[in-house]
Amino acid sequence: MLQKYKLIISIVSVIGLLAFSGCAKKDVVGSNNEGNHTTAASGQHTGTHEVNGLNDGNGHAIANTIDSTVDGSMDATDNSAAASIVILPSAPAIYFAFDSYVIDGASATTLQAYAAWLKADGNRTMNIEGHCDQRGSREYNLALGQQRAEAVKSFLMAEGVASNSISTISYGEEKPACVGTGEACWAQNRRAALSAH
């Protein structure tokens, strides 16, 4: 129990360092009218965003433990002191609005944590699966899922992750996380699933 407590404290310390190092650099990625890449709204990140991307090393989320300790945004990418102990974020996916591949502020925070983890070891890789909800055509959704995966890849590359450590694939609407209808279910399916190794 004591060991676990120490682990949590050390994680909190790392997060604290990350959090005070500055605001999120970028909310790049995505396109809208005429296909121009645009910048999504960049909001103040709360501690919840960071902790959602962490676990206690035993696969258990520790969001409640450190929620109150983090105030402000984090930039995990340029904290070299923390690099050797960057922890793999636990958020398995980021989510999108209907027919959109714009990365929102909360997702950007998650991806920054992934970028830090990937950059900490050059042998680490990530596969990004783009998915869609069941509405609309399967062929278009296949392309939309790919754009979601590419948006994540572009974000990570902008954070300094090497292109060759990232692979992308789209399954469109073929592999839903939630089988059913209604926005609660569809929202879970409009995602980029993140698999880091």
């Binding site: 396109s31 005429e34 121009n36 278009y140 754009q147």
Partner: peptide, 28 residues
């Protein structure tokens, strides 16, 4: 050669044109 999605090509019967889906105007 457009940003955004271009997909689902279909040829005209004379082979001179292709119809396809694009979201370059914001929607498919």
């Amino acid at each position: 050669h457009q940003p955004g999605i271009d997909t689902s090509p279909t040829w005209s019967p004379d082979g001179k044109s292709i119809a396809f889906v694009s979201n370059r105007s914001g929607n498919p």
